[in-house]
Structure formats: C-alpha cells, structure tokens
C-alpha cells in the first residue's frame, strides 16, 4: 500500500461540517469508515487537519485516523479532480486489452496514473479488480462502471464526460 505524505489546508467552514458529522459518533470507532466516506464528499482530500478534527470529535487518536485513511486505496489523501477514473489492471482485464484502454486514457488526457488533469476535471489511477470482469476491460468513473472498452471507445466516453460537464457549467 502506498504511503503518501501530503498536507493541505482545509477551509474552516468545511472543518466545521466535518466536526458535526464526526461528533455524532463519539466513542464509536467502528463508525470511522462511515464518517470518512461521508466526509470525503465535503473536503478536497482527507488531509491531516481533517484527520485531526475527526479524531478529536470521535475520541480516537489522530494516528488511528490517519493510518486508517492511508491503508485503503479508495480513500484519497491528495485532492482529486471532479471525476476519478479507475482502470482495472488485473489479469482478466489485461488479456482483453486493458493496456490499450489505459493508453487511450493517457493519450487523450495527457496524464499518467496517479495524476490529475490541469483543469482539475479528471484524476486517473490504476486499481485492482472492479468485479465487472464479465465485461472486461473495465473502468469506473466515479461510481459508474464501464466495460468492453478499447482505445477508441474509452476516448469517446471521456469526450462525453467533458461535453456534459461543459453543458453543466453553461447552465
């Protein structure tokens, strides 16, 4: 598991909301995952100051919170883009051409795994099996699974995201 040292400053107003969520589960460390899953939609990243607030409100140590967050690959400690693309790198996708899909993403967005596009729209990472091997090669964008992709079709898919995102901004 990767360990990333990263510290950013989270806006005060967001920390207040984090505190409200965490305070409801004081003395219930088993609720840490639920708290974090809710909090990650509020803050740009699960940074150290967020961990400190959660720890204080739930009555556990900051070390416990931070070591928890850094253990799980889906909990981001770095700010991510508006959409997160996760491309499966395991063998059942590999034999169906996942390398071409990854190449399609990298060529189109001009980023490597672990990076975010300059406009902050996409973060791209590799991941383990997404459980949709019956339509491999597969990726997920945020909560949505996509399968049976190739070099061209993954780029069409990303174009659609960009198109729809632009529309949303104009509205």
């Amino acid at each position: 598991m990767n360990q990333v040292n990263y510290s950013i400053t989270t806006p005060q107003a967001q920390l207040v909301r984090v505190a409200e969520i965490a305070a409801a589960w004081h003395g219930r460390p088993d609720k840490l995952m639920d708290v974090i899953l809710e909090v990650q939609h509020i803050v740009p990243a699960l940074a150290e100051d967020v961990a400190a607030v959660i720890a204080r409100e739930m009555g556990i140590s900051q070390n416990d919170v931070y070591s928890f967050v850094t253990f799980y690959s889906l909990l981001p400690v770095r700010p991510s883009g508006r959409h997160t693309i996760r491309a499966c790198s395991n063998a059942p996708c590999h034999v169906r051409g996942s390398k071409a899909v990854m190449q399609g993403i990298e060529d189109f967005l001009k980023i490597r795994p672990g990076e975010t596009t300059e406009d902050g729209m996409f973060t791209y990472t590799l991941c383990s099996c997404l459980g949709i091997c019956d339509s491999s090669p597969a990726i997920m964008i945020d909560d949505k699974p996509y399968g049976n992709l190739n070099y061209e079709s993954v780029q069409m898919l990303l174009k659609r995201y960009i198109r729809e995102d632009v529309d949303a901004w104009n509205r």
Partner: peptide, 20 residues
C-alpha cells in the same frame, strides 16, 4: 474501501471495527 486483503476474515473484522 478498496483493499483485497480485507476479504481475509480477521482483516475484515478489523476493518469493520474501524481499523486498518
């Protein structure tokens, strides 16, 4: 939250308890 090892029974318990 994306950890293969959490399928191992005791790791799964740890995870439910709010630990690594």
């Amino acid at each position: 939250a994306g950890a293969y090892v959490c399928g191992e029974e005791t790791a799964l318990f740890e995870s439910i308890e709010g630990k690594r």
